[in-house]
Every structure is written in C-alpha cells, then in structure tokens.
Amino acid sequence: MSDQSSGQRRPRKSYLEAKKKILALLGTAEFNTGDQIPAERELVAMIGLSRMTLRKILAELVDAGILERRGNQGTWIRQTVIERPLTSPVEQGISQITEVNGAIPGSHLLYFQHASASVRIARLLHIEAGDPIVMMKRLRFADASPFCLETSYLPLHRVPGLTASMLEQHGSLYKLLSGLYHIHIASDEGTIKIATMSEEEYTLLQVPPDTPALVYRGVITDTQGSPVEYLVSVNHPEKVSFKIRNPVMTSVS
C-alpha cells in the first residue's frame, strides 16, 4: 500500500533539506541547550524558506522534545534533563546528581550476576583473567523518564556477599560500598565517546534506532588507588550533558 493510498504523504525533499538546515544551525557552537533560538523572521532570512514551512518544522521539533515554547518569550532549545559534572567528587553518585538537577531519581536493576573476568576487564580491575566478578546493569530514571543505562563490573573479593536485594534496598552502590565494605570512592579515569546504540539500549532509553549516545567508560578507584569498579554508562543524547569546570590558572611573570 502506498503512502498516498493510506492517507499519508512523504515530506518533500525540499522540506527535509530545510529541516536539516535548521537542525544544523542549532547544532553549531553558537547555540547550547537552554538557549533561545532566533525569531521566525530571522530564521526565514537565514535559511531561506517560507514562514509557513518554518512554523511546521518548529512545531515538529517541539513535538520531538528538541525545542520548547515558553509562552510569549519565544522558542528555546530544550534543556537537558541531567547535567553530569565531570569535575565534581566521584563519590557523588548518579542518584545525588539527579536530585541536584531538580529531578526525582529512580533505578531499575536489569540483571545482577557473577561471572569470570575477561582479559580486558581483569586488566582494568587489576585482577587475573578468570577471577570472579560481579556484573550488574541498571536503567536510571529522572522523574520516571529513562536517561542512562549503566553496566558495572566489580571484583568479587572486594564485595563478598553482595546481593541484588542489598543493592535494591540501598539504592546507591557507592553508599553501600562505604557503609558495608568501608570502600571509599576517590577518583575515576575514563573517556566519553559518541557511539550508536544497540537494540537493547535504544529500546530501554526509548529512542529511535541508530540513535547516537554519549558513552562513558571508566575505572573508579578507592582512596588507596585500587580499582573498585569498571563502569560503562550509555547516556540519552537529548537528556544528558556533561559539564566541565576547570579553575583558571594564572601565571606570575
């Protein structure tokens, strides 16, 4: 059955190109999340399209959650739900970060199991390949909306007796490590890359297939410098941003 026979028409190529131009403009260095976009007349002049077409495209972007209208104040790039600081103390867990952003944190434990460390995981955690580890995957929520999928790998000898029910009861892994195992998180070292989500990831984070994600991979260490956790965090690109704040160093001449 064709699109026309089903009562639906595909957008014209010129319309799709105009939409791409607007998205490209909003993706430049001039704009950031939470910024107000130019007035309609300015956008019409900048991109070269009719005001009717522009309004239709903006309405679609509002429906998609990319833009938001604020009454008579105009149209704004929607603020990300969670701003994750890269320079704050690592012991501040994701639940606390969510609360700082003014949202109610939530978590769903997808699986919790024991496994044998692969060569790569063993190297990162400073253990031997084949040593027992704890693997857990959690879906994180802010105001009941999923924004992050986290997989953790911990050496079993650091957390003997740890169970899924204990984790669900305490909520925060780092508080559990501190209170029960006297392991105090001190630092982390990792990377942030853009990667295409897997089917499981885009399904859980409720985004279209082939959506890019902000993926953090890092090793978290304790106050003695020993690895405690290897973390893989897949973040919703429209709900999470990473914030960097470095002090300005002044030189004395």
Rank of each mutant, 00 (worst) to 15 (best):
M1L: 08
S6L: 15
L16M: 13
K19H: 07
L25M: 13
L26N: 08
G27H: 09
F31P: 00
G48Y: 05
M52R: 12
L54Y: 01
L61G: 02
R69P: 01
G71S: 08
N72D: 10
N72P: 05
T75D: 03
R78A: 08
V81G: 01
I82R: 00
P85Q: 01
P85H: 03
L86E: 12
G93Q: 10
I94Y: 06
V100H: 09
G106V: 02
L109G: 04
S116C: 09
V119D: 10
L124F: 07
L124T: 10
A129F: 08
D131H: 11
F147T: 02
E150C: 07
E150I: 13
P155D: 05
H157C: 06
R158T: 03
V159D: 03
G161H: 12
A164N: 06
E168M: 14
Q169S: 13
L176N: 03
S178P: 05
Y181R: 12
I183Q: 06
I185A: 02
G190H: 00
T196V: 02
M197I: 03
L204E: 06
Y216P: 00
G218E: 02
Q224V: 06
L231V: 10
V234S: 03
P237K: 07
P237N: 08
E238A: 12
K239I: 05
V240G: 00
T250K: 13
S251N: 12
V252C: 01
